[in-house]
Design a protein around this nucleic acid. Structure first.
Lengths: 151, 151
DNA sequence: CACTAATGTAACAATATTAGTTACATGAAA
DNA sequence: TTTCATGTAACTAATATTGTTACATTAGTG
């Protein structure tokens, strides 16, 4: 599995849970679908549990379920619950702060990143798990085209 | 040095070049300011050279110079020249494409990322090296406040 | 022309990050 | 009490990134 696939991993898992609402799905089953390890699934879904998005139960017929309707789970809620940042963190070492320029660069970049985060958050808020499950986004990024592929 | 500091490294170096326009600055001198290795400097500035942003000269009094006025070097030009992506690429493995859900997730995320990239690019376009050198952005991200710190 | 000073670049080492795995404790249901 | 599941720590493996060394190349200078 590639780098920082946690977010798409989570989305994938959540859509599975949404599509099978009657019974809990185990980490092992999900791991098979996601082509990864059960522990990895638990780690990711564990964070979503803390945010009240999914619930887990132990023992017989245990596993994972959605705790809310899929349409009420925004990508932003997931993104936030996972403590992920879609933006890479570009920071210099603290050591060369004497230079002065570094601080300015960091300030400008920091400002930019914060700004960009807010932009992305607003957009993620508009897409839900249900949207993904429906194979199209009712609140598409581009209202005139719907979801389409690039490249 | 931390992860993916290449972009801020480049900015830092460019501001130095801008502030000392009369003579070329060597990789070694820059490396000292940036607290890194001369080879790292060459690697980063080498990419900017390919984009016509800086020039390098060998031999005596050799080193690096800006090829354009700092105000004509946008952060986007730098970002682009470096082949960097501010956004993390979140892709699942190609293996589980049979699942169907993966493709949808990838499509939605891909759409989102492409969209976000365009947004960020437009914003990066508005900031130049001169802006950073001036310690404030004439075209600030937030016109009413100028550049400020978050957190 | 030799000498020095710089970049250009390949190859390698070190580090950091991320994902994958094993192992075992805990809890719940049959 | 046995079985099946999560919870979690600890470790390994893989990957990505940065740092370093070494040396070829090029350009000035005496």
């Amino acid at each position: 599995m590639k780098r920082s696939s946690r977010l798409s991993l989570a989305l994938h898992a959540l859509v599975h849970l949404h599509k099978q609402p009657h019974e809990a799905i185990t980490s092992t089953t999900l791991a098979t679908c996601l082509m990864t390890n059960p522990v990895v699934v638990r780690r990711v879904l564990g964070e979503l549990r803390e945010a009240g998005i999914v619930g887990s139960s132990k023992g017989h017929d245990g596993g994972w379920r959605l705790l809310r309707p899929a349409k009420d789970i925004s990508l932003y809620a997931i993104y936030r619950a996972m403590g992920e940042s879609l933006l890479i963190r570009t920071e210099s070492d603290p050591g060369d702060i004497q230079c002065g320029i570094v601080r300015t660069v960091n300030a400008v970049m920091g400002e930019f990143i914060a700004d960009a985060e807010a932009l992305l958050a607003a957009r993620l808020e508009r897409v839900s798990i249900a949207d993904i499950a429906n194979q199209a986004t009712p609140n598409p990024l581009h209202p005139h085209h719907g979801v389409h592929h690039h490249g």
